[in-house]
Design a protein around this nucleic acid. Structure first.
Lengths: 226, 226, 226, 226
DNA sequence: TATGAATGAGTGTTCATTCAT
DNA sequence: GATGAATGAACACTCATTCAT
């Protein structure tokens, strides 16, 4: 853990990030630590002080990189979301065969299976994250989101011939809604878990991936069948 | 402190709710005031003290009726949700004609149009409300939810002949997800509103009712077209 | 638990205490339940509501018998203290043989061994109990205490020939101090218990009865040796 | 908020305690203010907010120095107790003449005469202070207490030739008990004060120093006379 | 850039006690 | 006498954020 031999501090990070690459590295470090904490607990339970400590930095330093807690987590969401978009893009474009709805639905749902943090954060986007963030950051996020949606939307329209112009992005909007909605339904509180354990409660137990696949498949079939 | 009824008292309710009906009335009063505050602001901004004050009661009195803030709001959600279920049920059953997917989608979406508080609360169900609530209350809620889902689900299966056995409740699960997801997407933070005002941001501006109608219609068509 | 067959209530107590003996019985019942709760927990943890419930009475009823929580517990202390005085008196007077200091010390300490509640309450007498009590109750308590002290004090002076006039009560004052002081030292908080578990901490671990016996024996020998 | 030193600031301490000595000074300041409030009222009446205000600090700042109210007061007790121990030690060692019981008793009792806060806090040690304190703080306190007891105990054994090995600390335990017990008996509640004003109540009126001297003298004589 | 001491707004909940019935 | 609904004062502690150094 000690990377500065001879120095008293136990800090892993460099003392001062002068170069842009150092700053970027430190930024990533903070995001990584925030993610680790968030994945293990919840937004409310993640303290800025803990993020700082885990990153080997002082509390105040975090605020040099992210002006608010919401800004930090919006940046984290941005990272996760657009990296997922990129991976989805790559995954989809690998396939030369013509796309089918069920295949697409499965692909999307599977690509989200391990992205619990992403989908959890997505569900807090408007309610929490965008509540205490600069217009600039919000704009940047929305612009990138728009761009990605238009890009993937165009891709969908190109490869799913039953999609009419403009329907690609719309599918993504509905996907977004399904993802955040199902994520919340699937993340059950301890009390509820106990209640849902009864066999007859089965209809209320939500399997995120299964339901997302099913709903998305049906949705696409609905578009195809017109 | 008000001993001269009619002089300063603004409440019709008796000073002390001794009979069960009085207690029920007071309970409703508290729920109503909580709803009014919530509709105007947000969960976090509603203070138990304000609810009490608006109801003309002392702070401690609220806790005679609801053991925690979460319990109060879960009870509120319960009220709104099951009264909506009942209204939807009535609305649907009025129609003698055979149901169609688009008609159903429109009916459901329209019936939810004015239910902003309901859908906002629904989105907090697992994340917030069920976090600090007795197992009993949670169980009661889930049981009623299950019952309603099975009931409406059966209705769907009976009137939409393309639905296979067991698909009624599943449609409702997907509806639930869409509702909470779209609600969150539609409730835009002030900063975001500013950003979304740009014309080119149109694809990111969500009209709750329109999108819910569209998505649900498509979903049902997808089921019909098999 | 139901002693009034046919009545809906589960109350063990009579509906109304009209006769003085009924009232006295109810009073004792309340004291007994308060004692049971106190012995198992602590003063702060005993709720008036719990006392009422255990006694099968309504919350408000307790206050018909004891105007304040402190009054209830002072009454309880009174009961325990003077019943102990009586028992001590009896025990001491049984012995025909001339008294000795060590024998007396042992007798007293042993008679207090099982009286944890009494000694715990005694330690709260001035700090807590007498803080919220009527002058009448306080006077009554002090008068009885004085009387008992004078009585037992006189007994001591009569049977321990080394005691000079007026020293009997004084011995009792010192006894009182030792009892409350040692009781507090012996009642160790959980954190402290952990700390005191270390072998080298032995000198700080207090055995109430042993220390009381030792101190009292020494004290009496000190008086005898003049 | 005070940025013009000398204008409104009543404090000599720097705005920010950066050096260890500044921090220690601030810590002492808080302890002093807490002591002032406690001496004038009671533990329950001292509010952390008041301590902060008197120290010219924000509420939260107090918790940077003491994690809980109990921790603050245990630290205060620690200060008072060990400073008293030191003063007692000095006082006792000044005397070259061989010690006698009566002299020692008088010395101890007199040295405690002005230490009302110390003895009052001592009586709350196990009941209150150690209830909400870290194991570390508790251990530290007990270790110091043990050390002091062994030290003073050894001193006693060395200078009072009638003490057998191991009896020094035990005398201190009995002293501790007498001190806390007598302190509680001497601190009379307002109601009780009224009652005790009657001439015939004289035997119940406790003079802390007088009784402590008497009891301790007798106790030591008891040890001497074997 | 980095630090970390200081800030201070923010609140749900308990429970002894009262009093209308 | 009994009830139990209503009262309302009371309060330590957290943590995102700032800013002097």
């Amino acid at each position: 853990m000690v990377s500065n031999p001879g120095v008293k501090g136990e800090r892993a990070a460099p003392q001062r990030a002068r170069k842009d690459e150092d700053k970027e590295a430190r930024r990533r470090l903070l995001l990584d630590e925030a993610l680790a904490l968030y994945a293990a607990t919840s937004y409310a339970e993640v303290k800025m002080a803990d993020v700082a400590e885990r990153a080997g930095l002082a509390k105040g330093t975090v605020f040099l990189y992210f002006p608010t807690k919401e800004a930090l987590f919006l940046a984290l969401l941005e990272d996760l979301l657009f990296s997922w978009f990129a991976r989805l893009d790559a995954r989809l474009c690998q396939s030369d065969a013509p796309w089918t709805g069920p295949w697409l639905a499965r692909s999307v749902a599977q690509s989200l299976e391990a992205e619990t943090s992403l989908t959890r954060l997505l569900a807090m986007l408007q309610t929490v994250l965008e509540q205490n963030v600069s217009v600039e950051q919000a704009r940047r996020f929305k612009e990138r989101l728009l761009q990605a949606m238009l890009h993937i939307g165009a891709l969908l329209e190109a490869r799913l011939d039953f999609l009419k112009p403009g329907e690609g992005p719309r599918v993504l909007v509905h996907l977004h809604a399904l993802v955040t909605g199902l994520r919340q339904m699937a993340d059950v509180a301890p009390v509820a878990r106990e209640v849902l354990a009864s066999p007859h409660m089965a209809p209320l137990r939500i399997d995120f991936t299964a339901e997302l696949t099913a709903a998305l498949t049906t949705l696409l079939r609905g578009l195809e069948s017109r």
